[in-house]
Simulated scan of single mutants.
Amino acid sequence: MIRALQPTPLVIEFPEVSDEERAAAIAGNEEFKKNVEWWNAHVKEVRDAHTGKFVCVAGQELFVGDDPIKVLARAKAAHPSPGSGFVSLFLSPHRGPKILSTWPRVSR
């Protein structure tokens, strides 16, 4: 016997967000924007001085090191507020286009 099963309806629930959480998220977003602006203003000098290192901008302050975990730990220690809007990345020493050594197979 074949029986058609009725699919159960999909229910999506959105959690209630308190005013404090919303304010913290907005403040973190504003801090992130300030850190991006600081990065954009100093990118040339930072890249020239710290190529091959991990960098993090927190509170418009630069943290540099070889280990990303230690760099983020120093940034969080200096700016402990949650949602601080950190900007972190690795400054690759490679310049120019990246050439992949393997090509995808093309079926015939």
Rank of each mutant, 00 (worst) to 15 (best):
I2T: 10
I2F: 10
I2Y: 09
R3K: 13
R3E: 13
L5R: 15
P7E: 12
P9V: 14
L10P: 01
V11H: 10
V11W: 05
V11N: 09
I12A: 14
I12V: 15
E13L: 06
E13Y: 03
E13T: 13
P15W: 04
V17Q: 12
S18G: 06
S18A: 04
S18I: 00
S18V: 00
D19Q: 14
E20G: 04
E20K: 12
E20S: 10
E21W: 03
E21Y: 02
R22T: 04
R22M: 08
R22G: 05
A23R: 14
A24N: 08
G28Y: 00
G28F: 01
N29Y: 02
N29V: 01
N29I: 04
E30Q: 13
E31G: 04
E31I: 03
E31W: 03
F32P: 00
K33Q: 14
K33C: 06
K34F: 00
N35V: 05
N35G: 01
V36R: 10
E37M: 07
W38I: 03
N40H: 09
H42W: 04
V43K: 13
V43S: 11
K44F: 14
K44C: 09
E45T: 14
V46T: 12
D48F: 02
D48K: 13
A49W: 00
H50Y: 14
H50E: 03
G52D: 04
G52M: 10
F54S: 09
F54C: 11
V55Y: 09
C56G: 03
C56Q: 05
A58L: 02
Q60M: 14
Q60F: 05
E61H: 12
E61L: 05
E61R: 14
L62N: 03
F63W: 06
F63I: 02
F63P: 00
V64G: 03
V64C: 07
V64T: 08
G65N: 06
D66C: 02
D67T: 02
D67I: 01
P68T: 01
P68K: 00
I69Y: 06
I69Q: 12
K70M: 07
K70F: 00
V71K: 02
V71I: 03
V71Y: 01
L72Q: 08
A73D: 14
A73T: 04
R74W: 04
K76R: 13
K76D: 11
A78Q: 11
P80I: 11
P80T: 13
S81V: 12
P82S: 06
G83S: 05
S84I: 10
G85L: 05
G85P: 03
G85N: 01
G85W: 04
V87I: 09
L89V: 06
L91P: 01
S92D: 09
S92M: 03
P93Y: 07
H94Q: 15
R95K: 15
P97L: 10
P97T: 09
P97A: 13
K98A: 15
I99P: 03
I99Y: 12
L100R: 11
S101V: 11
S101H: 13
T102L: 14
P104H: 04
V106H: 09
V106R: 11
V106E: 12
S107R: 13
S107L: 15
R108E: 15
